[in-house]
Design a protein around this nucleic acid. Structure first.
Lengths: 161, 161
DNA sequence: TACTGATTGCACAGAATGACCAGCCGGAAT
DNA sequence: ATTCCGGCTGGTCATTCTGTGCAATCAGTA
């Protein structure tokens, strides 16, 4: 967690934006589009990835496109006796759990779940709550995606701190 | 939204897994690791991206690493008079809004918000609710990331439908 | 002025890419 | 059984990109 907040400049932001728009283009092409030397692009990219600003370039899998059309947010209430670690271990074993966070407020853990259908969602939730450490689950189904996950606007907002 | 659920096979799953683990390796290296012909890897990748199973290979920006260390889920209650479109437009203009979904249950819209600090979160929320179409906001702050966003386990679960 | 860090332009060898093609294989249809 | 077909293989080709190193330039700072 030793992440020092990286201060981006305008070139970094444009670099990320370009990369987000056309991820398969290489360093050379990037340097041409940005009108800077190739070495500069390489240095910037190395720095951004080294400092953690760019985690990676993983393939963005669309769950809906591989059969998991139902997405939902599930809030869990966990027994105090069981630590978060145990619950995390349990959730990590369920592939339909895409992410999980501890949260403030009524619930203790918020996780994002996908399933093949509403009926299948029931199965997944049963799998989640079928663990002693979890007392109850509150399910919210996502009906439509208004804004798909994005970070490009954020990088632009980050250039002058 | 013409996404036909793509049926993955075991090679697809291994391909995605490898790509997720080491995103910068090329097609040739992939073919070596998977012990298949290079053309096969190219064909598979083309098919997966063409059918939408892989949305892209965008740079995964870590908001926390560029100064936005606070993450939260905000549930919005919107006025019925204003359509979702108007609200979407408003939210889309706020860079700190990383994604948004319409949902079932008490709220109407769930969105993911980041901010530089708790104080800054207040500013962002004010910006969100400073719009007529939005009546109130319910904020849940994410304290710790138990499971970072992942899809690899899901691809494995998808191979036999 | 001297120093440091970043950027530039250039060069090189090695490697990967996209594009082909002929051959092979298993399953499905005839 | 025979034919057809899609997918996979292994190979080649010219082109392009990558990683690397280097000297020179430039801006900001000590």
């Amino acid at each position: 967690m030793a992440e020092q907040a990286v201060q981006l400049d305008e070139l970094d932001a444009r670099l990320i934006e370009l990369l987000a728009a056309e991820p398969r283009i290489g360093v050379l092409e990037l340097s041409r589009r940005l009108a800077v030397a190739r070495g500069t692009v390489q240095a910037r990219l190395d720095k951004l990835t080294a400092r953690g600003a760019i985690k990676g370039f993983g393939p963005d899998v669309t769950p809906a496109a591989i059969g998991f059309g139902v997405m939902s947010f599930v809030t869990l209430e966990i027994s105090q006796r069981y630590g978060h670690d145990a619950v995390t271990g349990h959730l990590a074993e369920i592939p339909e759990v895409l992410e999980a966070h501890t949260i403030t407020g009524g619930g203790d853990v918020m996780c994002r779940i996908v399933a093949r259908s509403n009926a299948d969602l029931q199965r997944v939730i049963d799998k989640i709550v079928g663990y002693e450490g979890i007392r109850r689950a509150h399910t919210i189904i996502a009906l439509a995606e208004l804004i798909p996950y994005r970070t490009v606007p954020l990088t632009k907002a980050a250039i002058r701190m």
